[in-house]
Design a protein around this nucleic acid. Structure first.
Lengths: 409, 409
DNA sequence: GGAATTTGTTGTTCGAGAGAACAGGAACGG
DNA sequence: CCGTTCCTGTTCTCTCGAACAACAAATTCC
């Protein structure tokens, strides 16, 4: 699931080709439209080698020749031909499973959302019901796709703990799920067998912001997600961290709460009891049935009341500990923290500065997501696309070619 | 400093050879004595390719042909010739800078300590004084080395924050240092210019235990070091985490302390105020001048007094949070925690079990260091050896060949 | 003792990237 | 307006490293 290669293996020449082909595609995916000259300098390979790789990608139907990139290089010399994602190229389906709604999108190489659909998800719905409605959304989203374009896979963002090895949803408290094989359920509802990847919403938010959001070029970042529960996704050295089981970054139960309130996990003083959605909702007397739309409620405020300012300070203090431990260059505040931070920015910053050690403080920045509320969705797309960058030929081999017929059921 | 390759680069054929040669050497280093047949299956390369790589390593003088490995394979077939570290092969010097003493060792490929020396370090000593005495220890340790053997580099373990980019010691509270370029000081005292690597003691402990200690084969582990201050080194996915500046894993200032004692960092309730050496010393009425030997004091106890049992519970509770966040497969308790854990194992385990979430708890193990008190020292050796595994030819090129003459000053 | 099995060795093949030579296309300078 | 300069795409050849095949060597098993 992670892009890390197995350590200790040797490299044969087939692996070289695979890696280089995948890396070219990764660059095209990142930039959308890039010149061959840029590819040569980015990858440090010879012009002729790049030409061969680009030609192979074109023959695979994933990229196509394009006009030179606008405003690329100023000066003399022959302009370099562009490479861009093919119009009828491969795509994936991304699913963002929220507490109250599911968003499904068709996302092409390059990270563009080509089509989108959503539907409400009933609280406490059974997994197979949710799976059926997700499958129906998938069919909608895929209906207008070019017939020749292959479907590479499905990526699903889940608000809960996802086991790394097999994508099993171990625990999703806000969905009321435990040990649910949601990937299999969706595939069964669709009646196909294609690669499915699942991930935690905070992890995927971090991945998306790192690749396409405010965190582009930032190799050490943390994405804190407020989505009823509080979680973090961590990118360290440019790599998404998973932990032994896939549960890396569960910061919601760190005991930052001085009041010592009891948490649903059984312990006391968890950070979630201070800055979790339910805690905030209670503090500002927000009705319980609107907790899922807490960000909209917060956006409605002009001036923050004192309770929110105190929450902002608590958020800043908690972030200080997180920064001390993870030493990130950037912390992205996602979910309802996005709205909260806009309201009480001063308090959060003060709380952070007050408690962070000097060394980690000097290089860290707080930021809002560059992808708005689509972070997790686009992160789901990224993990579904990942096989293409590891081995384009193999990934296209397992892709679903005749999508309409395949999903007709 | 970290073994991660720069992302986005292409692989040319020169890089392939470099990588494969380094990987063979890495395996020989790890195993000490390994058969060529094992190398072929581990690396997935052809027999003849491995033969060529091994021949090159032999011609470089880093490995030599050996008898077949004892008790390797049972069954028919020609026994596979062994590969082992050359007797007069390259070595490094490892330095473990402690609070009260410096240990210096000559360490060969394969991780064997070939020679060792130590000297007390005066509390509050100036960096140049410490540097001079370290340099003198280095000369001792190198004196009996085979004259043909090259010195690849120096690795230094420091109890403090080390900046990743240049190895500057940003802050070492227990040495009273701030912004000290200790690597340069030692090199100047030696009068040579060879590669020097510095690292935090907990980080290096984690690295060593992962490669040569209890954590062999465990790709997600945490090493908690108790050395006056409390810190953690984290290996995730088989890679040591550094963070943006190199300060990843500073867990000593997480606010786990319910009593809310004031810490030297200015905040309240830091974990160090509960399980730090000074806190423990105070709790058991240990004289202040023996804090540096806290482990020996603890080893003197037969039955733990109540105060230590409470400390054990606090340690367990803190570890629970750490396990929740980092989701490791193993937690190694180093420094004086080694002695403490042996005394109050039950309390630590109970505290951990009580507060860890079910999912991360089910896969985690507490362990004692497999390398005793040499973890940080051997970790320092590992980072000094690392260049050899990235590019053996280049690393041997920058190595010091005529060591006696070079260090004669 | 012969068959089976596994490995080391040697020479050849194959494939991917590097490099050189040439052509194409634009900006620049006069 | 035209030649120069600069950079890039294209094509062909070269080089190098890994794979492959065939054979020899060394051990176990029957």
């Amino acid at each position: 699931m992670s892009p890390q290669r197995r350590a200790g293996l040797g490299t044969n020449q087939e692996a070289v080709r695979r890696h280089n082909l995948g890396t070219v595609l990764r660059h095209v995916h990142r930039a959308g439209h890039i010149s061959r000259a840029e590819l040569t300098s980015l990858m440090g390979l010879n012009r002729s080698t790049i030409a061969g790789l680009v030609a192979e990608l074109e023959s695979l139907g994933v990229s196509e020749r394009a006009h030179p990139v606008e405003g690329a290089r100023q000066g003399a010399g022959r302009p370099s031909a562009g490479v861009r994602i093919a119009a009828e190229g491969p795509y994936v389906v991304a699913v963002d499973l929220g507490v109250d709604r599911a968003v499904v999108a068709r996302v092409g190489l390059g990270g563009q959302v080509l089509q989108r659909a959503q539907a409400p998800v009933h609280d406490g719905g059974e997994a197979w019901q949710v799976g059926a409605s997700v499958a129906s959304l998938v069919r909608q989203v895929v209906a207008d796709a070019p017939p020749a374009a292959p479907l590479v896979g499905i990526g699903i963002s889940v608000p809960g703990l996802v086991r790394r090895t097999d994508g099993l949803i171990r625990l999703a408290p806000n969905l009321g799920w435990q040990d649910v094989s949601f990937g299999g359920i969706v595939l069964a509802a669709l009646g196909v067998d294609i690669p499915v990847q699942l991930g935690n919403d905070a992890d995927l938010g971090a991945l998306a912001e790192h690749r396409r959001g405010v965190g582009v070029g930032v190799d050490d970042l943390i994405y804190i997600s407020g989505n009823v529960g509080v979680g973090a996704g961590i990118i360290a050295g440019g790599v998404k961290l998973d932990g032994a089981g896939g549960y890396f970054g569960e910061v919601g139960h760190l005991p930052f709460g001085l009041a010592g309130l009891t948490c649903h996990c059984g312990n006391r003083g968890c950070w979630e009891t201070e800055v979790g959605a339910h805690a905030i909702a209670e503090a500002i007397h927000c009705p319980a049935d609107k907790v899922a739309q807490l960000d909209e409620v917060l956006d409605g405020y002009g001036e923050p009341p004192a309770q929110l300012r105190a929450t902002g300070t608590a958020l800043g203090h908690g972030l200080a500990s997180i920064v001390n431990v993870f030493n990130p260059r950037m912390v992205v505040l996602g979910g309802y923290f996005r709205s909260l931070y806009s309201l009480v920015r001063a308090e959060v910053n003060a709380g952070l500065t007050e408690r962070t050690l000097p060394a980690p403080l000097e290089s860290v920045t707080l930021a809002l997501p560059g992808l708005g509320s689509d972070s997790a969705l686009l992160g789901a797309a990224e993990i579904a696309l990942e096989p293409l960058f590891v081995d384009p030929v193999a990934a296209l081999g397992t892709a679903l070619v005749d999508v309409r017929a395949g999903l007709a059921g």
